[in-house]
């Protein structure tokens, strides 16, 4: 009796830790990719995630357009918004401080816009691409959406990583991220690379929203959670270090699931924050390592 309880608890932690970990890795991928290549912190990242959700709600629910068409339009519009923010900021912001603040303000602007146009309604639901009926895996129930999103996450994260690691485009990206001046000397158009990476990153976060939001609800402050998750994981993994994304995501997801099981309050975000602080004290540069050195 007791051993079966322990078994189902462990299975629960294992299953949800893995599913959340993979979803988190996908959420983080776009964020850390942009930072790794261009050293730009995309503070509008969570707001772009939210944008996809609201667009799907607008087209699929309010206007009753076919779900797949709605998803397509939503992803394209999200990329367009992301790109507009990126272009304006890189063109006009004079220094890193202004850039970061203006970027954060544009995330807030999107929040205010959605609050205004959707009359601040909280708890809107958007349809998912698979039914929301749960499957029973050895006594633990898991929604089909979660299984789909975790699988797609795994495939996408590995695909992007391999692509950057192996392809000739990936080589150009890595050259640009290491030293864009030298890369330019070798005929790589680094502006173009930055732009492409930003588009890919926005598409990733939009796809993450398509997969994950159906099991959540749509509210004007929903950008916070993916944002916190992406931050926490990319800080633990060492900002911009792709290969550490999945391990770091698992660290966060397993701590969250375990603590969720032990503590009766929803403190997932605080758990993530706590884990980050602990890591920061132990490994200031992330698990990817590298000693802290000054520039000579």
């Amino acid at each position: 009796m007791i051993s079966s309880l322990i078994f189902s608890t462990l299975l629960y932690i294992l299953l949800y830790g893995t599913i959340f970990g993979l979803n988190y890795a996908l959420l983080t991928l776009g964020f850390t990719l942009v930072f790794g290549v261009s050293k730009i912190l995309n503070l509008s990242y969570g707001a772009l995630y939210m944008s996809t959700a609201y667009f799907i709600y607008l087209f699929a629910v309010m206007l009753s357009i076919n779900l797949f068409v709605s998803i397509l339009i939503a992803v394209v519009l999200t990329v367009a918004i992301g790109l507009a923010i990126f272009m304006i900021m890189t063109k006009f912001a004079r220094d890193p401080m202004i850039f970061m603040i203006a970027m954060l303000l544009s995330a807030l602007l999107l929040q205010y816009i959605y609050t205004y146009f959707f009359q601040g309604e909280v708890g809107l639901i958007i349809p998912g691409v698979v039914s929301n009926v749960s499957l029973n895996i050895l006594g633990v129930s898991v929604s089909q959406s979660y299984i789909l999103s975790a699988s797609v996450s795994l495939i996408l994260v590995l695909a992007v990583w391999l692509w950057i690691d192996r392809s000739s485009f990936g080589r150009k990206v890595r050259a640009t991220s290491e030293d864009y001046e030298t890369a330019e000397l070798f005929g790589i158009n680094s502006k173009m690379i930055y732009l492409l990476i930003f588009i890919i990153s926005t598409a990733i976060v939009a796809i993450a929203a398509v997969l994950i939001v159906p099991v959540q609800v749509v509210t004007p402050t929903m950008w916070v959670e993916p944002f916190v998750v992406a931050f926490a994981i990319s800080i633990i993994g060492g900002l911009g270090k792709l290969r550490w994304t999945i391990p770091a995501a698992f660290i966060i997801s397993f701590s969250q699931v375990t603590i969720l099981y032990l503590v009766p309050y929803n403190i997932s975000d605080i758990t993530a924050f706590g884990v980050v602080i602990i890591f920061l004290i132990l490994l200031p540069k992330g698990i990817g390592g590298g000693k802290h050195e000054l520039q000579v």
Partner: peptide
Amino acid sequence: PTLRVRGPFFTLLSLLLPLLGTDFILA
């Protein structure tokens, strides 16, 4: 802990505080 790191790392950490402020208080 946070002033041990610089630039974007510090900024991200500081942003977590208000984002989680309500959670903190509620918990």
